[in-house]
Simulated assay, not measured.
Amino acid sequence: MLKAFFQTDKGRVRPHNEDNGAVIQITATDVFAIVADGMGGHLSGDVASKMAVDFLTGNFNTYIHENSDVADSLRRLLQDSNNEIYSYSKENPDCQGMGTTVVAVKADEERYILAHVGDSRCYHIKESSVEQITEDHTLVNELVKSGQITSEEAEFHPRKNVIMRAIGTDPTVDIDLYTYNWDAGDYLLMCSDGLSNKVSPTQMEEVMSKDGTLEEKAAELIAFANEAGGEDNISLVLLYNEPADKEGVSS
């Protein structure tokens, strides 16, 4: 059985929340989940993230039913949401240049398929290990990959938040796709950078290893981010591949 929970918080500094997200519990063993972090002038960041989430949730069933290749369905979903947001920004001057990150996952008990654009992340948490599945589409990450700066320098780089790839900012977008197996007892943590910039993998593992509901774990992770400054909006989805012997027990 799969369990999922979405939570968002505007943080301690921002006047409004430009993040968005959703969980669709398709069946007891199938889930579709999204986290989106909007960007743009005025209030257009929250327009972009809401448009992306609305498009993905509103069209997910149609795209999946039309195509047995789930990864390709997710790619088409994100590309078509990109087209919609880009067109809207061209027609509405107040939204010029708006865009959003997206991390979207279709999961069942055996595997998860992930589509990703931007610097929102997905972590696979298994026993005592935390693995970052996604790769940030940021200027700083490109500098790290090319050897111009170290990972340690990247943490404090003044242009850390410069996004190189987003949904809605250009006519087309490259979309990263991943397919992984996972086991009963594993978690996925999907989150905006308001969480990943403030909460370490060690803290993530500490929270997920405790007893408690997904709601309680989400609240504790958000509290960590706010205690560390909470300068950005904070959003996450927790997915839990619940072992059969725990079904019916709070988790």
Rank of each mutant, 00 (worst) to 15 (best):
M1W: 00
L2E: 11
F5W: 11
F6N: 14
Q7C: 04
D9V: 08
K10I: 07
R14G: 06
R14I: 00
P15N: 02
P15V: 00
N17I: 09
N17E: 08
N17V: 04
N20W: 04
V23A: 13
I24C: 11
I26E: 03
T27F: 03
T29D: 15
F32K: 14
V35I: 07
V35Y: 10
G41E: 10
G41F: 08
H42P: 00
A48H: 08
A48Q: 09
A48N: 09
D54F: 03
L56G: 12
G58L: 02
G58M: 01
T62D: 13
N67P: 09
S68I: 04
V70L: 06
S73K: 01
S73A: 15
L74K: 06
L77V: 05
I85C: 07
E91T: 14
E91N: 14
C95R: 12
G97F: 03
V102P: 11
A104K: 04
V105Q: 11
D108M: 02
Y112G: 09
A115K: 13
A115P: 06
H116I: 05
V117W: 02
S120A: 02
S120N: 01
S120G: 01
R121I: 09
R121N: 13
R121W: 00
H124R: 04
D136W: 12
L139V: 10
L139C: 09
V144G: 13
Q148D: 08
T150N: 14
T150G: 15
A154H: 13
E155R: 15
R159V: 01
V162Q: 05
I163F: 09
A166P: 14
P171A: 03
D174K: 15
D176I: 06
T179S: 15
Y180W: 01
A184E: 15
D186Q: 04
Y187M: 08
Y187W: 11
C191P: 09
C191W: 03
S192Q: 06
D193N: 12
G194V: 02
G194D: 08
L195N: 07
Q203S: 01
M204E: 09
V207Y: 05
K210F: 01
G212Y: 10
T213H: 07
T213G: 03
E216G: 12
K217L: 03
I222N: 14
I222G: 13
N226C: 08
G229V: 05
G230Q: 13
D232P: 06
I234V: 13
L236G: 07
L238F: 04
L238I: 06
A244I: 03
K246M: 10
S250T: 06
S250I: 08
